[in-house]
Design a protein around this nucleic acid. Structure first.
Lengths: 346, 346
DNA sequence: CCGATTCAGTGAACCGGTTCAGAGCAACGA
DNA sequence: TCGTTGCTCTGAACCGGTTCACTGAATCGG
């Protein structure tokens, strides 16, 4: 058998004695009688015609593909977000082109231009280098939705606000329980100078009179374990560790166990994401739920609307999804606070 | 400013007084002098020309996109696999089109035809419905790599063997420790009649004289918790639970805790994947490491070679990656075995 | 009964690249 | 000096759809 060439629209046209144009219309249910449509569909079926998505995309100027640019897919939370996003995008018949910046802003830039400039109808950026003018430029050309970037205050095409308040809530929670000396583990993005998360943390800590050490950590559990090990060995040891992702919190759990420290007796730990594993580890993890599903749905809907409407991203719709604090067992009162009445130590 | 049209190759041609063909060659470093190439590159730079990937794909018949069809992206192991795969594919300049069958074979079929028939140069299928002739058909048209399917014995385009031996090792491990009554939790795929995993499990159990109940479970931690709760309430309770994914094992941990059962004293648990969380939960999870990174690399390499060479998938290269048993704390001897010498209780 | 409208279907241009056959020219060997 | 070779570049066809302007026939209102 002569390695059969894939059937094209012209083959279907020939088989039905119609013009390619008519076939094109018929397959999309336009400008043709129901009878013709049925005839075309039957012929297409017989020939195994499925249509060439690339050709369609070139002609129609729409790919039906959405770029998903993750800051670091190694992070459990991001993985889960991608899954949720895929589900939501699927409802709009959009497919995901997933790219992983692996924590490197320069890779993020290159992927963004590669994908954004070429393949996709829209872009979801889940963790970005806010210092780049890149986003504004991309936003000119196609709908860009940024999630989890409320911290930056920078506006790209369309933004899904969220977690400034999440960080604040958690820090206040630590404070209310008597903590005064914290470590904050934030996902490392080596070359970005003004990480928004750090700014918010610093600001809130200053307001509350919290002494916080901000430390970068890889997203991976193993990487975080290493960082946390050093942290927990320091003197004086922080009474609490706030991790900006549950992934990192897992690392802290391991490091604490290695060192024989009990959570929350010896050290309190908090995460960010509300990943399912937070309910499996012991003690269950106190964390911030940023309503990932809702965010994913909103992002998908926004993007789908923009894509369908060929709307210029000028629309700048903003959806704000409020995070919630999920209290479980991993934060307790610090030693000092348990012995004496917590003083306003400043 | 008149919403500037994106620069095309003809614009660059005009700017350099060359033909589009020459520009095309120059940009790829072919058939042109170094001087011309430099001139073209400069002009392209100035015009902000990036090239249209869709047009290029149509003309060249190659998209540089690889479809990644996951059985269920809800599974933590699959998430991690996708991440690893992305990294490996990136080395070959391939991008990932990620699709999630969500455990439904029919969705798997439709996604496979949609992606495979249209967009991608190749396909990685991580969990498939082995009963479908679909794969053979797709394999005719493009390189298909199936991972984790040694169980089926069915050959699609190219197959990455693995986990038959993994399942066997673990069951033997249970057996050696004295377990005789197991529950096996396998990811649910509702409509597939002859799930290969079940067949292997049944076969090995028969050989070892193990009494195993095979139960379907969703991939999600929550879903698995529910299933496990019912399982652990049954009488007689199985002495061990072998989960065919770490995700599911997490669910069992939660269910056990809810019921006040200690692992491994009251019930032993094993997973499959060697996901990082297995080292965070307590007791640390005994599991099968199927060397996901190696598998991902092999899959990517195979696919890249096939894509680059335009090789007909006839090549049927097979790579076998051997899994390893990772013993940690979650399997112990069952009660009965601890009291008296384990009898062949049947 | 006639002109206007509607509708199914056609032909050709187009999307933006790649690639093939061939042209023009310089360098080369005989 | 001339034919050959090799290199750079051109024009046109092509990938496989979509869409626009248009035609001929059927339908409609008056």
């Amino acid at each position: 058998m002569p390695a059969r060439r894939r059937a094209t629209i012209r083959d279907v046209a020939a088989a039905t004695n119609l013009s390619p144009a008519a076939v094109s219309y018929a397959l999309r249910g336009m400008q043709t009688t129901a009878e013709t449509q049925a005839r075309v569909r039957r012929a297409a079926e017989e020939l195994g015609y499925t249509g060439n998505a690339v050709a369609r995309a070139l002609a129609s100027g729409r790919t039906g593909l959405v770029g998903v640019l993750s800051g670091s897919l190694e992070d459990l939370g991001e993985q889960r977000f991608v899954e949720a996003l895929g589900r939501s995008l699927g409802r709009h018949d959009l497919h995901m082109l997933v790219a992983d910046a692996r924590g490197e802003p320069e890779r993020e830039r290159s992927l963004a231009t590669r994908l954004g400039g070429q393949w996709v109808d829209g872009l979801v950026v889940s963790a970005l280098d806010p210092s780049a003018g890149l986003w504004e430029e991309l936003g000119e050309r196609l709908p860009v939705v940024a999630v989890g970037d409320a911290l930056g205050g920078r506006t790209v095409g369309q933004v899904l606000f969220d977690n400034r308040s999440g960080v604040t809530m958690m820090l206040e929670h630590f404070h209310a329980l008597g903590h005064r000396r914290l470590a904050v583990l934030t996902p490392s993005r080596p070359t970005t100078p003004d990480r928004p998360a750090e700014l918010v943390v610093a600001e809130v800590c200053a307001r509350l009179g919290l002494d916080a050490t901000i430390v970068n950590s890889p997203h991976s559990v193993d990487g975080a374990t290493e960082v946390a090990a050093a942290l927990l060995a320091a003197r004086p040891r922080p009474t609490g560790v706030f991790c900006l992702s549950d992934s990192i919190a897992c690392g802290v759990y391991v490091a604490a166990a290695d060192r024989g420290l009990a959570i929350p007796r010896d050290v309190s730990v908090a995460g960010y994401d509300d990943h399912p594993v937070g309910r499996v580890i012991r003690p269950a993890l106190t964390t911030v739920d940023w309503n990932l599903d809702e965010v994913a749905t909103a992002a998908a809907d926004l993007l789908a609307a923009a894509v369908a409407g060929r709307r210029r991203p000028r629309g700048r719709a903003r959806v704000r999804v409020a995070p919630t604090l999920v209290e479980r067992g991993s934060i307790g009162a610090p030693r000092a606070a348990r012995r004496r009445r917590p003083a306003a130590a400043r």
